[in-house]
Design a protein around this nucleic acid. Structure first.
Lengths: 222, 222
DNA sequence: CGCTCGTCAAGAGCACTGCTCTCTTTTCTG
DNA sequence: CAGAAAAGAGAGCAGTGCTCTTGACGAGCG
C-alpha cells in the first residue's frame, strides 16, 4: 500500500519533486536569499499562489532543501568509506565534505553557513545531519586507543563526553574531545576556503587542505 | 585640515554615523537579511529615497558594517593580548573571538558566515580583516621553535607558506601550516557553536571550547 | 551683492517579494 | 452519482531596493 498511492498522491509527490528540483537549480545559481517562490511557480507555469499548497511557507521549502542537502552529503560521506586504513578513511571523509562544498557551495552554505535569519531548523533535520557525523564517529571508534593527553577534559565535561560517546562507542575521553576539535577544524577549513577567507593567501587549496587534514589525523592518533 | 571640514561635510559624516548605528541595531535584532534601508530611513524620519545619498546601495551599507565589525573584532583581539605566556595569549585570543561572536552573533555571521548572496567583499575589507589574523601570527612568531612534524608540507605549498610567513616571521614551515589549521579550527568551533551545530549535544559550551583550544595550543607547540 | 552650481530631501513610481483570501475547477470517495 | 476534499487561479496587501524628477538650501565665485 506504500507504492499503490492514489493518483492524486502520486502527482502531488511529483509536483513536490519538481518544485524542489527547480528550487535547487535556482539555489545553485542565486543562493538561498535569491530563492523566490514566485520565480519557481513562474518556471512551472503555475500561479504564484498555487505553490503554497505544496510548501505553505518559504521556510518549508528551505527545510526540504536542507534535509536533501544533509542526505546528499551523508551519501557522499558514507560512499567515501571504502578504505580500511583509519587515516585513509579520515582523509576520504574530509575530501568528500570538501568536494561537496565546492561542488554545491550554496547548498553547503545552507547547511553549515550562517542560518537564514528568522529560520529555525525543525527537528526533521537533525537525523539527516547526523549521518555525516556518524561516519566520523565510526572512524574514530574503529581506530582503537589513542595516545594519552597530558590534560584530560575537566570533570565538568563528563556528561557531554558521555553523550558524544554514543556516536563513537568505546572511545576514550581524550579521543572524544579531540574528535570534536578535529571535526570543527574540518568544517572550519572548508568554510574558510568556500567563504573566501583564503583569497589572496592560499593558492594550492586542495593540497593545503589535504596537508592540514593529514596533520589532524595524527592529532587524532589515527 | 582634517578636523576643519566644511559644515556640510561634518553633517554628512554625522548622518553616515547615525545610519550605521541604526543599521547595527537592526542587524543585531533581525540579522543581515532583515536589514531594510526603508526601515532605517523611517526610523530617522527621512524619506526612503534620501538614504541612497549616503549609501547608494544596500551592499555599500553592508560593506561599512563589515569593516566596522572586523575592526571591532580586531580591537577585541588586540586588547586580549596582555599576558606574556604564549598559551595564555592564544587562549585569550580564542576567547576574545568567541565572546565577540556570542555577543554580536549577527555581526559575526556577517564576517565569517556565508557571504550574503550577490555580495562580493571589496578590497577595503581585507585590511581590517587582517588585524585579528596578525594577532595570531604574532603569538606563533613569539613562541619560538616548534617540535618537528613527521611529515612536513609538500614542496608544492612552499610559495603559500612563504606568503603566510609574512604574518608570522621566522616561523618554521611546519608551524605555519599548523597555525593555519588551528586558526580554521578556532573559527570552526565558534561557528559551530553559534550556528547551532552543538544544540542538543554539548551543554558546557565555554568549557568545551576552552578545552579544545588548550589542546590546540599543545598542537601548536606553545 | 547676486548667481550659479552642487548637495540634499522628498515624492511618485517600477518591478519585485511572501503570503492571504476568495472563487472556481478538478478529482477522489462514500 | 453526489458530496467532500484538494488544487489551481486571480486579486490584493504590505513590504522591499532602487530610480527619476522636482524643489529647496547653502557655499563659493565673479
Amino acid at each position: 500500500m506504500s507504492a499503490a498511492k492514489t493518483a492524486r498522491e502520486r502527482v502531488r509527490a511529483e509536483m513536490v519533486r519538481e518544485i524542489t528540483d527547480i528550487a535547487r537549480t535556482h539555489l545553485a545559481r542565486d543562493g538561498a536569499a535569491g530563492l523566490s517562490l514566485r520565480a519557481i511557480a513562474r518556471e512551472m507555469g503555475m500561479a504564484s499562489s498555487a505553490i503554497h499548497r505544496y510548501f505553505p511557507t518559504k521556510d518549508d521549502l528551505l527545510t526540504a532543501l536542507i534535509i536533501d542537502g544533509y542526505n546528499a552529503l551523508g551519501d557522499a560521506a558514507e560512499a567515501s568509506q571504502r578504505d580500511q586504513d583509519p587515516t585513509g578513511r579520515w582523509l576520504a571523509l574530509c575530501h568528500a565534505v570538501r568536494d561537496f562544498a565546492l561542488g554545491r557551495p550554496h547548498e553547503y552554505a545552507l547547511l553549515y553557513g550562517s542560518p537564514v535569519p528568522g529560520y529555525r531548523a525543525p527537528a526533521d533535520t537533525v537525523g539527516p545531519a547526523l549521518r555525516t557525523t556518524l561516519v566520523c564517529g565510526r572512524i574514530i571508534a574503529d581506530a582503537g586507543p589513542t595516545p594519552p593527553d597530558p590534560t584530560p577534559p575537566p570533570a565538568l565535561l563528563a556528561p557531554d563526553v558521555e553523550a558524544l560517546r554514543q556516536v563513537m562507542p568505546g572511545v576514550s575521553d581524550v579521543a572524544v574531545t579531540r574528535a570534536v576539535t578535529a571535526w570543527t577544524a574540518l568544517f572550519g577549513a572548508v568554510s574558510f576556503e568556500l567563504f573566501g577567507q583564503f583569497d589572496n593567501t592560499i593558492t594550492h587549496r586542495r593540497e593545503f587542505f589535504d596537508h592540514g587534514m593529514r596533520s589532524l589525523a595524527r592529532y587524532l592518533g589515527l
